[in-house]
């Protein structure tokens, strides 16, 4: 298993070009092309801002300006949920590669996660622009921003773990794809994206803290949005450690099921 994992390093060129292909192919044929990577989160932001400003106004002054608060959570959430959604079907749609070309299957979920990460990163300039323009909002201190890549890394490891698990199991149980979209809806509301973490009632909060995405999103929010120290750091590092273990377990399952892919997809 570890040998297989090490082998992946040799395939980094392939991963790189597949991610590039994924991004290119996605907007091929559309008029605005690559700009959709910026416009999509922007439009999403507009919708949520409208809902939570005019329909269901946010009552917590700590989460003002609300659209900026929202943005800090939605960007990473979109990365996470699209990566999971896409990876659940990736081995099936890439079946031709697995069956006809000598090709390490784990590359497919990895590419999915990375392509979505690129979208996430492309959304960051917009976030930065909003941070700079928002009236009266503080600029996050550099000492905190330095932790930002760490949060991204933790999310990357965790998401890849989920992607391995989902892609491998979906080959055997196609039902997962349908269940997953529902689970992700619940998961979204169980993650403090549209409400601040500390707003949740005590009991619920304890429950929500079992959700790994809670800690990822709260970390982003504490670094970029809220003033004051990055108090969530220990929990994030703990999550990082758990994520690595989870990643290895997920990879173990994937590796064990590897030989079944060519027959089942």
């Amino acid at each position: 298993m570890l040998a297989n994992l090490a082998r992946l390093v040799r395939y980094r060129g392939l991963v790189q070009s597949l991610v590039a292909r994924e991004l290119k192919a996605r907007y091929r044929g559309s008029v605005l092309g690559f700009f959709w990577s910026f416009i999509n989160p922007l439009l999403l932001l507009l919708v949520y801002t409208f809902v939570f400003k005019y329909v269901l106004p946010n009552k917590n002054p700590a989460a003002e300006p609300y659209s900026l608060f929202l943005f800090c959570g939605i960007l990473p959430w979109t990365w996470f949920s699209s990566a999971l959604m896409e990876s659940s079907g990736v081995l099936i749609s890439g079946g031709n590669l697995i069956k006809k070309v000598l090709f390490p299957a784990e590359i497919l979920p990895i590419v999915t996660v990375l392509a979505n990460m690129v979208h996430f990163l492309l959304g960051l300039p917009i976030l930065i622009a909003f941070l700079a323009l928002a009236p009266g909002h503080h600029w996050p201190p550099m000492t905190e921003v330095a932790w930002f890549p760490v949060v991204v890394l933790v999310q990357l490891v965790m998401t890849t773990g989920f992607a391995f698990l989902l892609s491998a199991l979906t080959v055997h149980f196609r039902d997962i794809r349908d269940i997953l979209s529902n689970i992700l809806t619940v998961w979204f509301f169980a993650t403090p994206v549209i409400y601040p973490w500390f707003d949740a009632p005590e009991g619920t909060r304890r429950f929500l803290s079992f959700n790994p995405m809670t800690h990822v999103v709260v970390s982003y929010q504490e670094i970029l949005f809220f003033e004051g120290p990055f108090g969530h750091l220990p929990l994030l590092l703990l999550l990082g450690a758990i994520s690595i273990v989870f990643f290895l377990c997920a990879y173990f399952v994937f590796d064990r099921l590897r030989d079944t892919f060519a027959e089942e997809v």
């Binding site: 070009s17 292909r21 091929r28 031709n96 069956k99 006809k100 070309v101």
Partner: peptide
């Protein structure tokens, strides 16, 4: 292995890019 030709081709991108990938 010439088992299925062009098994990895992506329909949306050009022949040139597909040759590379």
């Amino acid at each position: 292995a010439l088992i299925e030709l062009g098994a990895g081709f992506h329909p949306e991108i050009s022949g040139r890019e597909n040759v590379f990938i």
